[in-house]
């Protein structure tokens, strides 16, 4: 485990949906700078709810209680865009993009999100259709250069996930929340995602990552620490190997995957 400055602290987080379903109960966790934390657990364990609550995406769907701090500042009552500007960036299980916009326009939006001041609203967007070096690196890393001027509605689901990740990265987050980046991918593509994550880490040394993942190969390769969620609670927390050794976890979840 890396000892470092704490960038994200969640304490006693409860998420209760309007339907009455309690998705997350009493979860506390802390994330250090440059730490890569995997969140694993069976379907319906509350992993995505946890990430959405951290980002503030559940405002109208669920009641969220508990404290949430980004770099020491409490954000529990902040709107999603404020949290994003404080350094949170996320991707979704099913890629969330702006249909009908080109890949470049996604990057332009990320650039507007990244900047401060009134000028970013007034500047003509077309004059922005040049990549900064950092953006060019992201684009080359994700292999999106060929599709830059294509509309995302022409791209496949796998490419959409890359476009979403590119936009998120170009907004320059401090904390990256990846919700099942390999969902629906084959083992080779999953391998590719691992490489991408490792390169991103090399590119942005200060980046912290929370990774929701079902594919245990990816978890063991990428994460330094893993927490296991079950029925809205954290039942294990430690290095991936510790977690794998935990008998309760084995019984619950890992047996199906790691046993093979």
């Amino acid at each position: 485990m890396t000892a470092g400055e704490e960038v994200l602290a969640v304490s006693d987080l409860d998420v209760r949906y309007r339907s009455g379903f309690q998705a997350v109960s009493g979860v506390s966790l802390s994330l250090a700078r440059n730490e890569r934390l995997a969140v694993i657990g069976p379907n319906g364990a509350g992993k995505t709810s946890l990430v959405s609550a951290i980002c503030g995406d559940l405002r109208r769907k669920a009641s969220v209680t508990g404290d949430l701090r980004i770099e020491g500042r409490s954000v529990a009552r902040r709107r999603p865009h404020v949290r994003a500007r404080m350094g949170l960036g996320r991707t979704y299980q099913v890629a969330q993009v702006f249909p009908g916009m080109t890949v470049l326009e996604h990057l332009a939006l990320a650039r507007i999100a990244r900047r401060r001041g009134v000028g970013r609203w007034l500047r003509e967007v077309k004059s922005e259709f040049e990549l900064t070096d950092a953006e060019a690196k992201v684009i080359d890393l994700l292999g999106l250069r060929k599709v830059l001027t294509q509309r995302v509605s022409q791209l496949g689901q796998g490419d959409l996930k890359l476009v979403e990740l590119a936009a998120t990265l170009c907004a320059e987050p401090q904390i990256l929340l990846l919700d099942e980046p390999t969902a629906g991918m084959g083992s080779r593509e999953a391998e590719n995602v691992c490489e991408v994550i490792e390169t991103i880490v090399a590119l942005r040394p200060s980046l912290s990552i929370i990774l929701i993942e079902h594919n245990m190969d990816v978890v063991f390769r990428v994460a330094q620490r893993a927490i296991v969620m079950h029925q809205g609670r954290v039942i294990a927390d430690g290095t991936p190997d510790d977690v794998r050794a935990d008998s309760e976890v084995r019984a619950l979840y890992l047996g199906y995957h790691a046993g093979a």
Binding site: C55, D57, R79, P80, H81, A84, R85, G89, R90, Y92, Q96, V97, F98, P99, G100, M101, E105, A108, L109, A110, I112, A113, R114, R120, W121, L122, R123, E124, V125, K126, E128, E164, A167, T168, A171
Partner: peptide, 27 residues
């Protein structure tokens, strides 16, 4: 229409949740 303001407005129509998660003040 051509400014960043106009572009973020279109993004808000297309996917307001994503725009907010990127750090854009949709409201």
């Amino acid at each position: 229409y051509v400014s960043g303001f106009g572009m973020v407005g279109r993004a808000a129509r297309l996917n307001s949740q994503r725009a907010e998660a990127l750090g854009l003040n949709v409201v």
